[in-house]
Each structure stands twice: as C-alpha cells, then as structure tokens.
Simulated scan of single mutants.
Amino acid sequence: MALILVAEDDPGTLKLLSVVLQHQGHDVVETTTGTQAWDLIQRLRPDLVVSDINMPGMTGFDLLGQVRDDIDLALTPFILLTSLQERRDMRQGMRMGADDYLTKPFQSRELIDAVNAQLGKQALRAASQEMQFHARLHDALEAQARDLGDDYEDKLALALSQQWPGTHDEGRGAPEVQGVLLCAGILAHDQWAATLPPPALAHLLKRFHESCGDTAHLFGASHMQFTGDGIVALYQDPSPTLATSPALRAIKAALGLQKSVAALRAFIARQHPGLALPTFDIGMAVHCGPVGLMRLEGLIGGAAQTVPVGQTVVDTLAIQRHAVGGGTPITVTVPVLRSITGAVVAAQRYLLALPHREQPIDVCRIEALTL
C-alpha cells in the first residue's frame, strides 16, 4: 500500500488519522509540526501528505508551498485539514495547489474516500508517465536501430569497395580470373513471394542479404553480386588476409550460412507470428572456373563496383537452383570436391541436368564437414 505522512498538532486527531489509515493497510508516519513534516517529506518522499493548516512553526499552507516549489516533490498529493469554517481558507489552499481538503470533525469514510481518490489519481499519473516513457524509449530504439543499420551498411559498402580490385581500370575490358564461386539463395522463393506482401518480402530479403554479405565477406570474398533472392561471392587465391585455399574459404562460408538459417527462421517467426508460411531454407552451390570481372558505376553510395560475370557464374546459379536434397544443402562440383579432398564428407554424388547445358554436370552434395 501507500506511505502516508500525517502532520497534525492535536493528539486525538492525529491518533484517529493514523488508526483509520493503518486499518486500510497504509504505512503512516506521524508528526506534530510543519517543520518536522518538511524534513520527513524530503527524506522519505511519501506517496501522500495529510496536513493540518494551523500548526506551530510552519503552517499547513507553508508546508504545501514548500512541497509545490520542490521540483522532485511537486506532484506529491496533498490533503489539507482545517477546523475553520471560513471559505477563504479552503480557497487559499486550493489556489496553492492542494488536491483536496477535509473539515474537522470528519468521518472516517470521508478520510478514506479522499485518500483513495488521490492515490488513484497518482497511480493513473504514474501509469501515464510510464507509457510515455516506453513510447519515447521505443522511438529512440527504433531511431538508433535505423542509424546503426545505415552506419553498418555504409561501412560494409566502403570495406567491399576498398577490397574489390579493378575499379580504376578505365577503358579496359572485363578481366578474367580463375576463382571459386559460392552461390546462396532462398529455396521456394516463389512461394514466399506469393505468401508475403511486398514490404514484408523486401524486409526478409534485406535480412537474408545482410547475413549472406557478412558471412561471405568474413571468409575473404574478393567480389560479390547480389541477385533477387541470393548472392554470388568470388574467392580467389591468394587472399591478402587468409592463407587457406579459395575452395576451403567458400566451403566455410557456406557452412556459416547453413548455421544462420535458424536465426533467420526465428526472425520470420517474430515478424509473422501465427501466419502459415513455407519452411525457410537456403540452398548453396560451390563451383570453380574462369570468371569475368565487370565494372559497374555507382551501385553503392556512388562508388564504382566490380561484379563477377560469365559462364561459371551462370552455371553456379543454376546448380544452386536445381540441386536435389532437403534441408539446407551444400552442393559442390567435382573439381571443387577434388581440391578439398579430406576436408569434407560427401553425402551424394550425381549428374545434374541443367536447362542451359547440353551435358549434365558432375556434382556432390555435402552433409557433414570436418573443417
């Protein structure tokens, strides 16, 4: 219940006030002078003050004025007691900010009703302040999240721009390099597109692209190309920061993306509780061969970027989209598998027919990794 300070110089009235309020379950602090009441109010910060007007030293009016002038105590509910029947004393108290007054002698029910009314108002005021605080906090966190997201994207774009070579080779054709490609994309993307409204689908794709971009960058991808429902990352040898082979780095990145599926599923569940949605999964393919590097102007922040293109990219995308196997499959071509012999466990090897190729391509699905 509430902590109530009672200031009354008449012993009988003070006893009556205390007994009635304690019977209601409140904690009561008693004092007989206004000066002592002010000291107790500053130290204890009671939920409510009940004060007589005529007290020695400091009157109830003086005490009320002290409370209302203190920025930390100004909203404390204050009930005045008076034995004077003159209306000017009641009006003066209300003008000074008293919340209510009782005329002595008073009935116990009158005191209880007055106290309950003021404590109820205080509770409503506190609840309103709490709601306003949480609203402001929510807005601040939303703004912070937007700022952090924008800052993160700017830093990632700068890091990728600095890492990608060939952005200043004006007038040259697209150079060709030998490398390993990792392609990752959302499985059953057409079902997601048909189920989610465009803004929700865009939010999901943004989260997925961020996860893919972070992981590919972490394992030393030299170039990246974002597709509608996925990403293509190029790994070259040597890496300026990582000693492992490009094939091993691509496989490790694929494993990292495989583990990120649970976090993406949790994100979807939070965003769309109770909505019947397809099971979220991604498919990945790792392939190697010659890759062209094409310069594009102004993709991120106005800076020129270089993206991987060519037949090897087309083949890798097709393998990712047409590979068989449930769960979150990682499918590699046999040349990649041979370059990392002993580092992976092959689950299923088969010939994969691709719509754009006359001959099938030899691939292997990986389930367990020993990296």
Rank of each mutant, 00 (worst) to 15 (best):
I319N: 07
Q320M: 13
Q320H: 11
Q320S: 15
R321P: 14
H322L: 09
A323W: 07
A323F: 09
A323T: 14
V324Q: 11
G325R: 03
G325Q: 03
G325M: 01
G327H: 07
T328G: 03
T328P: 05
P329K: 00
P329I: 06
I330M: 05
I330Q: 02
T331H: 04
T331P: 11
T333Y: 10
V334Y: 02
V334T: 06
P335R: 09
V336E: 00
V336N: 04
V336F: 05
V336P: 04
L337N: 06
L337T: 05
L337S: 09
L337K: 07
L337R: 11
L337I: 03
L337Q: 12
R338M: 06
R338A: 15
S339W: 03
S339A: 14
I340C: 14
I340T: 10
I340P: 02
T341Q: 12
T341W: 08
T341R: 09
G342S: 05
G342C: 09
V344L: 02
V344F: 02
V345C: 14
A346R: 09
A346M: 06
A346T: 07
A347S: 11
Q348H: 15
Q348W: 13
Q348K: 11
Q348C: 12
Q348V: 12
R349G: 13
R349L: 12
Y350V: 06
Y350S: 00
Y350K: 02
Y350F: 10
L351T: 01
L351C: 06
L352A: 01
L352I: 04
A353K: 15
L354I: 00
H356D: 13
H356E: 08
R357M: 07
E358P: 11
E358V: 12
E358D: 12
Q359A: 14
Q359Y: 10
P360Y: 10
P360Q: 03
I361N: 00
V363S: 02
C364F: 02
I366R: 02
I366M: 05
E367L: 12
E367C: 14
A368M: 09
A368Y: 10
A368D: 07
L369S: 13
L369Y: 15
T370N: 12
